[in-house]
Amino acid sequence: KKKYVIKVYFEDTGKEVEIEAESKEEALEAAKRLAEELGLKIKKVEIYP
């Protein structure tokens, strides 16, 4: 089964997080949740198959 690796870059902090997920949708949801939890804004998202 294919996994996606999503790199999320946050504004202000210069922080980046990698998330593995089964689908792009799932990964983007996780990225949004994470940003909310951390109180950060997402600057850029890169998706690698």
Score class of each variant (00 low, 15 high):
E18K: 03
Y48C: 10
K15Y: 13
K15N: 15
Y9H: 11
F10T: 01
K7I: 11
A21R: 08
A30Q: 14
A31K: 00
V8W: 02
P49H: 15
K44G: 09
V8L: 09
E36T: 12
K43L: 10
L28E: 11
E20H: 12
Y48N: 14
L34S: 03
V8C: 03
V5Y: 09
E36W: 13
K1L: 09
E46Q: 10
A27H: 01
S23D: 09
A27T: 02
E37C: 15
F10L: 05
K32G: 05
V8D: 00
I6Y: 15
E18P: 02
S23Y: 03
Y4G: 02
S23M: 02
K1P: 12
A35S: 11
E16R: 05
S23P: 00
I19T: 03
V5H: 11
E29K: 13
I19N: 00
V17I: 13
L28K: 07
E25N: 05
E22I: 04
R33A: 03
Y4K: 03
I47N: 03
F10V: 01
K43D: 14
Y48W: 12
E29P: 02
L28P: 01
L34C: 02
K7T: 07
E22M: 03
K43I: 14
A21P: 00
E29M: 09
K1E: 11
D12H: 11
F10Y: 04
S23N: 13
T13G: 15
K44E: 10
K15L: 07
I42T: 01
E22H: 13
K7S: 04
R33K: 14
E26V: 05
E18A: 05
E36Q: 13
A30D: 06
E37H: 09
E26C: 03
D12K: 13
F10E: 00
L28I: 14
G39Y: 02
A30N: 12
K7L: 10
G39R: 05
K32N: 15
A27Q: 00
A30R: 15
A30C: 03
L38T: 05
D12F: 11
I19A: 03
Y9M: 13
L34E: 02
E25M: 07
I47T: 04
V8S: 00
A31S: 06
E22D: 08
L40Q: 08
K43G: 13
V17W: 12
G39D: 07
G14M: 09
A21W: 02
I47F: 10
E11C: 04
K32Y: 08
P49L: 09
V45C: 03
K32D: 08
V17K: 04
K24A: 14
I47A: 05
E20V: 11
A30H: 15
I47W: 11
V17Y: 07
E36S: 12
E26N: 09
I6L: 06
A35W: 08
R33V: 08
E20Q: 15
L40P: 01
E25T: 06
T13D: 04
A35K: 02
V45W: 04
G39I: 02
I6V: 07
K44D: 05
G39S: 04
V8M: 08
K3M: 11
E29L: 15
E16I: 14
E46D: 13
E36A: 13
A35E: 04
G14A: 10
E11V: 11
I47Q: 10
G14Q: 11
E26M: 07
G14L: 08
K24V: 15
Y9T: 09
E37Y: 06
K1Y: 02
I19P: 00
K3T: 07
I6D: 00
A30K: 09
A27R: 00
E18T: 09
E25D: 14
A31V: 13
A35N: 01
L34A: 04
V17M: 09
A30W: 13
E26D: 12
K41G: 08
L34I: 07
A21I: 14
V8I: 13
L28F: 07
R33P: 00
G14T: 11
V8P: 00
E20M: 11
K7H: 11
I6M: 10
Y48K: 06
V17P: 01
Y9Q: 06
T13R: 12
E16A: 12
K44H: 15
K41Y: 04
E46T: 07
K2L: 15
E29W: 06
A30G: 13
L38F: 07
E20I: 12
A21V: 14
R33L: 05
I47D: 04
K3A: 14
V17D: 02
K41S: 14
E29Q: 04
T13I: 13
D12G: 13
I42G: 00
E22S: 08
V17N: 02
Y48P: 06
S23E: 06
L38Q: 07
E25Q: 05
I42K: 00
K24G: 13
V8T: 01
Y9L: 11
E46K: 05
S23F: 07
I42H: 01
L28H: 12
A27V: 15
K7G: 02
I6S: 02
E37I: 06
E46S: 09
L40K: 06
D12T: 12
E25G: 04
I42C: 02
G14F: 15
V45Q: 03
K24T: 15
E37Q: 10
E37P: 00
E16W: 12
E36M: 11
K3S: 15
A35I: 04
